[in-house]
Amino acid sequence: MRRRSTRPRFAPYLFSAPAVLLYILFTLVPVVYTVWISFRAYRLQGSGIGGRRVDVFAGFDNYATVFSDSEMIAGFLRLLVYGLIAVPLTLGLALLFALLLDVPAARAKRFSRTAIFIPYAVPGIIAALMWGFMYLPSTSPFSYITRALGFGTIPFLESPGLFGSLANIAIWGGVGFNMIIIYTSLRSIPVELYESARLDGATETQMAFLIKIPLTRPALILTGVFSLIGALQLYAEPTTLKPLTSQITQTWAPLMTIYRDAFITDNLPAAAASSTVLALGTLAVSAVVLWLSSSRRKAGARS
């Protein structure tokens, strides 16, 4: 009897091996190293010229420092205010544009989709620089108009308008990506549902609220999680605008504090602990959002 070859059995593993290896090397290994170094600390051993810095086990001291650091706590509070502005507006505008493009009477759909999506292709730093020049009183076209009308300059880079200015950059760049996801979900809804609703006398607005939005809930949840993760990773925008205003400090956002600890003060254990806390917080927020949406979906199915 001829023996069957075992090569096809191992073929999928051979094809996936490079991706798995890269994932281990560039994701799992850095994560494990970050967690490990977060439990370490630098101590000065000896005194004078002969003193040297040694690496010792510190337990949860670095994590205790993170939760007691007033600058880090203030950064999270600022991040909360920023998220409350950026996330709802990003999702709301993305949903609105997707619904408008899905209306049969809409014209120039291809051009509109491209125009709305283009800002997403602009790198975050470039977008922050561009908007920064439009925020500066001396170069802002908006402040030029208000000065000409006798209202003075618009304080884009002053508190409390700074939060809206930063959120505007994220909204401008993120609406297009989320709109594409929601619009793709809308296009997958069977046409028969719309035809039945029109025969029953439903308007486009009624179909939007009763058919389209409920059936695109998975896409809305996905874009919501993406927007939350993006808000928690705020870094490029405040860092780029920092030279333009005195309102943004080196520790304005949590990631800015982590960068300071890692690359300016050379305190890698503190930066590792803060990174771990931020990563776990991001994971927890995403899990809560997914759990709430799943519970609501199950409750709706039962009723």
Rank of each mutant, 00 (worst) to 15 (best):
E158T: 15
R52A: 12
P269Q: 07
A106C: 07
P218H: 07
G230K: 03
L96N: 03
F39K: 03
L79M: 13
A167L: 05
F156S: 07
R107L: 12
L290G: 06
P238F: 01
E192M: 11
S293I: 07
L255V: 08
I181E: 00
E237Q: 14
W172C: 00
V87W: 06
G48Q: 00
A64I: 14
S165M: 07
L93D: 03
G201Y: 06
F15G: 01
Y13R: 09
W252T: 05
A94K: 09
V277F: 09
L241F: 04
I181P: 02
F10T: 11
I229M: 11
I154W: 09
D69I: 06
L91D: 02
T265V: 09
S196I: 09
S5N: 12
R78N: 14
A41F: 07
E204G: 10
L149P: 03
I126R: 02
F163G: 04
F117V: 14
T90N: 11
L96E: 03
F60G: 12
I24S: 07
L21T: 14
S159G: 08
T245Y: 04
A273H: 02
L99G: 03
A98Y: 05
R78P: 00
R53A: 08
Y82G: 01
D266H: 11
I221Q: 13
P8F: 04
R187Y: 02
E71G: 13
P190W: 12
P155Y: 02
M179A: 15
A64Y: 03
I211V: 13
I211S: 02
T240L: 01
I213P: 00
A128H: 01
I37L: 14
A11E: 04
G59Y: 02
D55K: 15
I211A: 05
L84D: 08
S293R: 03
L255I: 10
A231S: 07
M130L: 15
A94C: 04
A74W: 08
W291M: 14
G281M: 12
L22Y: 10
S70D: 10
D200T: 03
E204H: 10
Y235L: 15
N178L: 09
F177A: 14
P254R: 07
S185K: 05
N168V: 09
T249P: 03
L199Y: 01
L241Q: 03
G132V: 01
S196C: 12
F10D: 05
S143K: 02
G174V: 10
W172G: 00
L255K: 10
V191F: 13
P190F: 12
L157Y: 02
S286D: 02
S112C: 11
M134C: 14
I248T: 00
V31C: 09
T276I: 06
Q247Y: 01
Y183W: 15
L162A: 07
Q233S: 10
S275M: 04
L244H: 01
